Computed example of a mutant assay.
Amino acid sequence: MKNSGLLLGAAVLVTAASSLVYAEEPQSTKVAVGMAIDQELSVVLELDDTYRFTLGNDGAAFDYILKRGRFDANTPVSWYVGVGGWSEWDHKEFGARVPLGLKWDISKGWEMYGQVHPELNLYTGPELQIGGALGIKYSF
């Protein structure tokens, strides 16, 4: 649990540091909230289409979206790639992950996303595994 606390603490520090940078600029922060199946049933908070926090029944995760792109200007589907970390409550497992996802703009403010994320479990030694998530968000 100590290591997972460090992982989540690092995610909070990164977000706090980035919010200080944004505080100097007169931009408003885009906020999206939603639900997902990621760490079992989860609540999702996303800031500026870049920082995604997931808190669920089974654990927590933080993803930093590195790159976003579109397949075609006429389709509502886009892709993204990120890096992040995850931790589970019961099994005390934790590690790094690389989200590879698709986002679908359903209607104004509403988005649906699906991703697979190769994971590196670091609890008992490096072990590769794969996870996935499916969620829906509303942007303010």
Rank of each mutant, 00 (worst) to 15 (best):
V12S: 12
L13I: 10
V14S: 10
T15P: 00
A16D: 07
A17W: 12
S19L: 14
L20S: 12
L20K: 10
A23Q: 13
E24P: 03
E25M: 12
M35Y: 08
A36E: 04
I37H: 06
D38F: 05
D38V: 02
Q39Y: 04
Q39N: 15
D48V: 01
D49T: 03
D49F: 01
Y51M: 10
R52L: 12
L55N: 07
G56K: 01
G56E: 03
N57V: 13
A60G: 15
Y64P: 00
I65H: 03
L66K: 05
K67S: 13
R70F: 07
F71V: 06
D72L: 09
A73G: 12
P76L: 09
V77E: 03
W79N: 03
Y80H: 13
Y80T: 03
G85I: 02
G85P: 00
W86P: 00
E88P: 00
E88L: 10
W89P: 00
D90T: 08
K92G: 09
E93P: 00
R97H: 14
G101E: 02
L102V: 11
K103C: 09
K103V: 14
W104V: 10
W104F: 13
I106E: 04
S107R: 11
S107D: 10
G109N: 08
E111D: 13
E111Q: 14
G114F: 09
Q115E: 15
Q115N: 14
P118W: 05
N121Q: 07
L122Q: 08
E127T: 10
E127I: 05
L128T: 06
L128V: 09
G132M: 07
